Amino acid sequence: MNVRQMINEKGGEVVTCGPETSVKEAAVSLAEHRIGAVVVTRNKRIEGILSERDIVAAVASQGAGALDKSVTAFMTRRVVTCRLNHSTDELMEMMTNERFRHLPVEEDGHLIGIVSIGDVVKRRIAEVQREADSIREYVTS
């Protein structure tokens, strides 16, 4: 399975915020949507990503006052993205090597979706199950 198939299944909706958004507003958005990261964009172009980890690190280093600052103060600016043709194996490798749980999907410089580690694991388990079923069917026929 590749990213295109994942996006077709789950949809391309991405929770985003602008660079002027406060960390508190971003945290509220994460809680409301039950997600772990928000992509910071301007005109559909990715400027950064702010995750739960980033918020925890901000509060740990600067106290509650960090919540009133803009997301740009704490977001990850070097955002690794994936493309529609990346496979689940490639995504797992990228996420494992870089130690993150969310990969924005980019096409022609624009944000078109996001893939989480949960999305990848769910699809990979389905692939393994299909392979096992095929082997069982082959062996018993």
Score class of each variant (00 low, 15 high):
M1D: 00
Q5R: 13
I7Q: 01
N8G: 03
E9P: 04
E13H: 13
E13Q: 08
E13G: 09
E13M: 13
V14C: 12
V14E: 11
T16G: 04
C17Y: 01
C17T: 00
C17A: 07
P19R: 12
S22N: 12
K24Q: 11
E25R: 06
A27V: 13
S29G: 08
S29N: 09
L30V: 02
L30H: 07
A31P: 01
E32Y: 02
H33W: 11
R34Y: 09
G36E: 05
A37Y: 10
V38E: 01
V38P: 00
V39K: 02
V39T: 12
R42E: 15
N43D: 13
N43P: 00
R45P: 08
R45A: 15
I49Q: 06
I49N: 08
L50P: 01
S51G: 01
S51T: 14
S51K: 08
E52S: 10
I55V: 14
V56H: 03
V56Y: 03
A57E: 12
A58W: 02
V59M: 13
V59K: 11
A60W: 05
A60M: 14
S61Y: 00
Q62Y: 11
Q62G: 04
G63Y: 00
G63S: 10
G65M: 11
L67H: 00
L67Y: 01
L67W: 10
V71C: 01
V71M: 09
T72W: 04
A73V: 08
A73G: 03
T76Y: 08
V79I: 04
T81I: 07
C82F: 02
R83Q: 12
R83P: 03
R83N: 08
H86W: 05
H86G: 07
S87V: 05
T88Y: 06
E90K: 01
M92W: 03
M92D: 01
E93K: 08
M94Q: 06
M95F: 14
T96M: 00
T96S: 15
T96V: 09
N97R: 15
E98D: 11
R99Y: 08
R99V: 00
R99D: 08
F100K: 03
F100H: 02
F100V: 04
R101K: 15
R101V: 15
H102T: 11
H102D: 04
L103N: 05
P104A: 10
E106D: 06
E106R: 08
E106T: 07
E107F: 03
E107S: 04
E107W: 02
H110K: 15
G113S: 01
G113P: 01
I114C: 07
V115W: 01
S116E: 03
S116Y: 07
I117K: 00
I117L: 12
G118I: 14
D119G: 06
V120E: 11
V121A: 09
R123P: 05
R124D: 08
R124V: 12
I125M: 12
E127D: 15
E127P: 12
E127A: 07
Q129G: 04
Q129K: 15
R130Y: 06
E131C: 00
A132E: 13
D133N: 10
D133P: 03
S134A: 15
I135T: 14
I135K: 03
I135W: 11
R136V: 13
Y138E: 02
Y138S: 14
V139W: 13
T140N: 13
T140E: 11
S141P: 07
S141A: 14
